[in-house]
Amino acid sequence: MEIHIENLSKNYGSQKAVDGITFDVRPGEVLGFLGPNGAGKSTTMKMITGYLSIGEGDVSVGGKSVREYGDELKRHIGYLPENNPLYLDMPVIDYLEFCGALQGMSPGSVQQRLKEMIRVCGLNAEKHKKIGELSKGFRQRVGLAQAMIHDPEILVLDEPTTGLDPNQIVEIRNLIRELGKEKTVVLSTHILPEVEATCDRILIINKGKIVANGTADTLRKQATGQEVIRLKIEDARVEEVIEALRKMPTVDTIEVIDKERNRLEVQSRTGLSSTREIFHLCVQKGWILSELTPLETRLEDIFRNLTTN
């Protein structure tokens, strides 16, 4: 089932939380939802899952509008809300059974899925404990298990890896990737490397509007017109090197990182590359070029550029 969002808006009083956003998510795709706090990520997710009513525009899931078929569509959506609210006084098993039953599963299929979820989410040792006794990481797994218990075609996960340790994060990411092969997954996060690791496509939203939409690579290409390389040149004085580099037509700016070791960062002019010229320069002058690393623009920088102004 695909999600189609068209011109979606939502106001809280006079404040526009979501402002006319349009996008699609297809099955077999993991969409990463990025944005600073208060950008409208959670509000959008709440509207997809039917917790909040739609302000303006429309959300359709599998071709059916959430406005009309909201209650019917909930059965096909698994949702992990922000902060992962759980009934702390319920044992894990009872809680998952309750969630499965509410999604209209028969007792037999609940038991079967329950076993699978406990295995997949690594909850076997904790299954009889009350949720309140679990650590944050295990609670997060319970949250994921309840979202997936009814095997939904669509998964909406609001910050799924908060509170997990690095090993668990890797496990959960792999799990999400695995699920993303057949299901439609929308996840929001603050952790930028996570988006690169798990998502097929990235959507950056700021002040309720979409400011970027594409794969990590396309976003990088859009953001970087300029090539940046890191250099280390031995057997030369820094001043000499800088002077020589300045004379090159392709070089835009030069930044000294480590004066002692002659390390520099060189930014080329838009659309041009200086790597070959630098190599020839070193050969000509008899300098030793011991490092030449092209630097990719980090996602953090793209994010910061798009969301601060």
């Binding site: 709440k46 899952t49 039917g50 917790y51 209650d71 019917e72 909930k74 059965r75 959506i77 949702y79 809300p81 922000e82 902060n83 609210p85 759980l86 009934y87 702390l88 969630c99 509410l102 999604q103 209209g104 309840q146």
Partner: peptide, 14 residues
């Protein structure tokens, strides 16, 4: 208060 209402109301219930 605990936010579980959001979890509950996004299940297939009215």
């Amino acid at each position: 208060k605990s936010g579980t209402i959001e979890m509950l109301l996004t299940k297939a219930v009215t």
